[in-house]
Simulated scan of single mutants.
Amino acid sequence: MCCSINMDASDPILLGKVRDKFCNDYKSNASLYDECDLHRLMANDWYVKRFLMAQQLDVDNTVVMIREALRWRKAFGVNDRKDCDFPLEFYKTGAVFAYCPDREGRDVIYLRVKLYRHFPKFSDYFRQYFLHIINKIDVQNEEKGWAMVWDMSGTGPSNWNLSIVRFIISCLRNYYPRGMRYLVIYGVPWIMTAFVNIGLKLVSEEARNVVKFAAKDQIFGFVEAENVPDFLGGKCVQNYHEVPKEAVRDCHDLAAERGINADETDAVLKFYEHYLTD
């Protein structure tokens, strides 16, 4: 059902229709949802607006999108995870982290692609960790949105995994619409150009419009030098390797809990040993 041409995503009538239709599904399938997400949907207008905007204000399609997103959140356990659930090495490497705001006051998530290597037994936990960071920043910034920087400098084919790229794209498109305001892809080596182009073909033209490319000092057009981490030539001294106080488990603890053998765990720690030195 499409709305009147005079309405926008903030219209109370539209918001009410979406909530009413969703509640009908919730009553029949309550076990598929997390009550925290239901409360947020009912109390936070932005959480409804973002899906309405993604569906061009079509109420029925918006309800379907919200239904799928909230069911995914329950199945993936988004609300169940805390900082302490992840091994301290995940933080120490500084491979993925939230950092200081950009020029518009939006928090920025950095992904150092050269620090990614596909370790099959740990792949699911990396996805959970990455989504944990995105979810925290998304909740904190709400309608203001947030940004992401993929640092591609020093990368090669071994750092690229299409399944992870598909996972990130799917999550941002289907479960966090209108959250990321832009993505800066920084320092793409010539050998990785084809891989990046493949990734861009997986997204819509609208999504490609929020992708920006930067090299060297061009990053400062998005984020002031005082807020950019040192590996991108910035002057910020905030520690992006900091481990939350409550995070005390390490990769060996995780491996023991999940039945991952010591050789596989040692391979991960060997790859990151340079970044794990206290």
Rank of each mutant, 00 (worst) to 15 (best):
F119L: 10
K144V: 05
I134T: 08
F76M: 02
P87H: 09
L172M: 14
L88Y: 12
A98G: 14
K114Y: 11
I109D: 05
C171I: 10
Y110L: 05
H118G: 02
K92E: 07
D83Q: 14
F119R: 11
G105F: 12
M180Y: 00
Q140V: 04
R117M: 01
Q140T: 07
A98N: 15
N135Y: 12
D83I: 12
D83Y: 12
K144Y: 03
P101K: 10
S170N: 09
P157W: 03
W150Q: 01
V184C: 09
K144Q: 11
E143S: 14
R173C: 04
R178A: 09
N135Q: 12
L131P: 01
D83K: 14
V113C: 08
W160N: 00
R103A: 06
D102F: 05
V96Y: 09
A147F: 05
R181F: 07
A95S: 14
V113G: 01
M148C: 15
E104Q: 13
D85L: 09
Y175T: 04
K82V: 02
F167S: 02
E142C: 13
R112F: 00
N141W: 02
R112T: 08
C84D: 07
S153E: 12
E89S: 06
A95D: 07
A98C: 15
M148W: 10
S163A: 09
V184K: 10
R166A: 00
S158R: 07
V78P: 01
D107A: 11
